[in-house]
Design a binder for these strands. Sequence first.
DNA 1: CGAATCTACAACTAGATGGTTGTAGATTTG
DNA 2: CAAATCTACAACCATCTAGTTGTAGATTCG
Lengths: 115, 115
Amino acid sequence: MVVDLLGAEWADRVFHALADPTRRDIVVRTLESEHSVSALARHYPMSFAAVQKHVAVLEAAGLVTKRRKGREQLVRGDVGTVRRASRLLDALEAVWRDRVDRMSEILAEPDGGTP
Amino acid sequence: MVVDLLGAEWADRVFHALADPTRRDIVVRTLESEHSVSALARHYPMSFAAVQKHVAVLEAAGLVTKRRKGREQLVRGDVGTVRRASRLLDALEAVWRDRVDRMSEILAEPDGGTP
DNA sequence: CGAATCTACAACTAGATGGTTGTAGATTTG
DNA sequence: CAAATCTACAACCATCTAGTTGTAGATTCG
């Protein structure tokens, strides 16, 4: 197969995590700088528990990590996972480009490879 | 704000569409070449109707398009949407890099901007 | 025409998702 | 120590999701 990343549960988790505007916003904020969960929660029109769940989804996808500092949990975005997701999409693009290349090959063949 | 793409419903639909292995596989196949819905359906251990729904999700996200040919509907992957999604992730990466740049700026300041 | 194929869509079910409230443990602060 | 803050987690509920089966409309083929 072309890329095994495509069948990976990892991709399921990452894309699902990114398919929500609140979670994307959390990723942006935490890529900029660390925030405690409750600091994040203040920005959204929902309960603390709801934001906590969003953070958990992002954490399970590897898009953020947490580290304890006193009584708060600091959330930080993980750019490596974002890059890996981006590369997966690049692989899709490559599939498309290969098709074109193969098309060109076929079209360039003298009198067809299928006698 | 950095990118309005982040709040867009479009991103919800695209990432949600990509968060399923069957749908990612359909994208790969249809980026390679056109396939009828029933031709696609033959590759997966589920009903025709289920695959049809997956195609509908991908179509709503703009990841594939359909064109009629006789009694069949040919599905083709749309690399433009894949690219747009990839760019959105690049924007996230840029947010992270900007933070670093800003950090460097701060660290590079002669004796700190905060007297 | 009649049979087969391809597609669309409705109705249904089990399970996941996104939100809520409430309770309890840890840690800081007065 | 006591109060306040931050987090974790359980239980609950409404809605969405991914699958199913079944029915019906187009289109091609014999």
